[in-house]
Amino acid sequence: MADRWLHRLLWLSAMLAALVLGGIVVLLIGRTAPFIAQQGMELLARQWYPGDGEFGMAAMIAGSLAVAVLALVLAAPLAVALAAWLRYFAPGWLRRPALALFALMAGIPSVVYGLWGLLVLVPWINGWVPPGASWLAGSLVLALMILPLALLVTDAALAQVPPDWLHAGAALALSRVGMLRRVVLPHTAPAIASGVVLQFGRALGETMAVLMVCGNVVQWPGSVFEPVRTLTANIALEMSYAAGDHRIALFASGLLLMLVTMALLALSWRLGRRHHGTA
């Protein structure tokens, strides 16, 4: 008897977790579907003047992509290079303190990254090319935020490399650089890419740090020194006073973020599975 009740209780909590996700998707779609149907391509073609009933998001979609892509371009190669370096080149004693540093970086709240960006990075860029609060500032802060996790997934992927190959490489006196370039990285590339794609999703979805350093002007990202506004920052900025269609437009941008996240997750899985296939 007791067992059956316990079973139901556990099933219920599992259903609750599933319901949260289902609830998010249903709510976002339910609230926005008529609006999206009514607006159609206007959502991309128009400008963003919510007061006048114009809800064109193209510039902010571009802003989100621009900030996240540049962050990824900065962080991913650095993360892969550092992970490989820590495993194959660095002196052994350095590994633990370095990993502790990356754990610290991963644990710092995004609002603190944003604060640092606001206090240090933005004035520094401003001294170079005003106004400082810009696409570049956002990408730099995001790059620092996604670097530690990208590094840790790369490290985990490298740990899966069979030691046999490394022994063979050593016995043939091959350089570590050569082994890395020809054997280790090609083999682990899908697993690394799978992890990096997830970090790209995180960069796209990040709100606070970007909100604090990007300047939040709604415009197409032209130069890296100009301010941009991302979809996430837009929700955070306008949700508190938005009403009517304006509010629904913000929910629509939330739905878009959610869909992009799911697509990236699916891509990450595909890449990850291919890795298992060849291993």
Binding site: P162, W165, H167, A168, A171, L172, G178, V183
Partner: peptide
């Protein structure tokens, strides 16, 4: 030294490259 003294291990450990590249890469 390792070029002069070659070694073969217990478990076959070819690199995950083509047959040809296993020889051309070294």
């Amino acid at each position: 030294l390792r070029r002069t003294v070659g070694m073969v291990f217990q478990q076959p450990n070819p690199f995950p490259l083509s047959i040809h590249d296993n020889l051309r890469f070294p």
